[in-house]
Design a protein around this nucleic acid. Sequence first.
DNA 1: TATTGTTATACTCTATAACTATA
DNA 2: TATAGTTATAGAGTATAACAATA
Lengths: 151, 151
Amino acid sequence: MQDDDKKNDPSVDFGVLNEFLGYRLRRAQMNFFTKFNDVCSDLGISPGLFAVLAIVERNPGLTQTAVAQALGNDRSAMVAAVDKLEGKNLLERRPAKNDRRSYALFMTDEGQVFFKTLCDRVTAYENQMAKRLQNEDEKRWLLDILERLAE
Amino acid sequence: MQDDDKKNDPSVDFGVLNEFLGYRLRRAQMNFFTKFNDVCSDLGISPGLFAVLAIVERNPGLTQTAVAQALGNDRSAMVAAVDKLEGKNLLERRPAKNDRRSYALFMTDEGQVFFKTLCDRVTAYENQMAKRLQNEDEKRWLLDILERLAE
DNA sequence: TATTGTTATACTCTATAACTATA
DNA sequence: TATAGTTATAGAGTATAACAATA
């Protein structure tokens, strides 16, 4: 492979795929997913675990179900996620005050420090990717569009 | 749930997640994925299978490995995919001319008709989603940005 | 009756390694 | 040696159903 790049093979016609937002979103998201893992997998943090940490950090005391609803996945998936994060001593379950069925989730001190490291790494590669946008306004606009397409 | 919508619960602060393209891309893509399945799952076609059909339709005779490379996934994943699509009589493996190791993939006549139905359905919901964009120029621009973010 | 966390389970998607038959 | 298709396998991610404790 001297000069040509098979990933951009011009001999393959993508047809309607190139016109479909769904496909283009998937390819872009897969790329971000891969880069996230390049940057964070040595810390044992996947994009999904990062999202849980981000929610708990900004909303201490939320229940597992509340976090699951915020992130748009099933509450049963939270068990393994919180188990992992608690096992790494990044957050902890505390008994909820007025409901003995549920736990309230909080970050540990160690979790706070760890999350800052994570954010620095993720922010660095996010900024790297954002350089492909023209300017800050364009990023704002893209984030706004993506939010509208997520409902 | 009378007037309020838990999916947009204003009491949950998403913090940095709202600023990260990776997270916003994922949420938007998940939404498209769900809607795709709403529209096509009765036909037994997932987004991944649709992509294979789209590539073969526009590039008859490609090998399995070439399709896998175009779509950015491993060639081992193509086996089950092509098995399914061949089982539905939508495409077929033919012995490649100059290489007895590989198959060339072609759409069947039934596949051609079926793919048109699929495209109609997917295009309909794509257009529905595109209404959230201002105009055709904005969609062009978004597709262009997504392509740049996919590398 | 309904809800929380949990478990068991299953299904999809994806990637890796090894095998075979070819090149 | 290298490559195409295949197989086995394993790891995520995700969803459903059911259960015990609690509301």
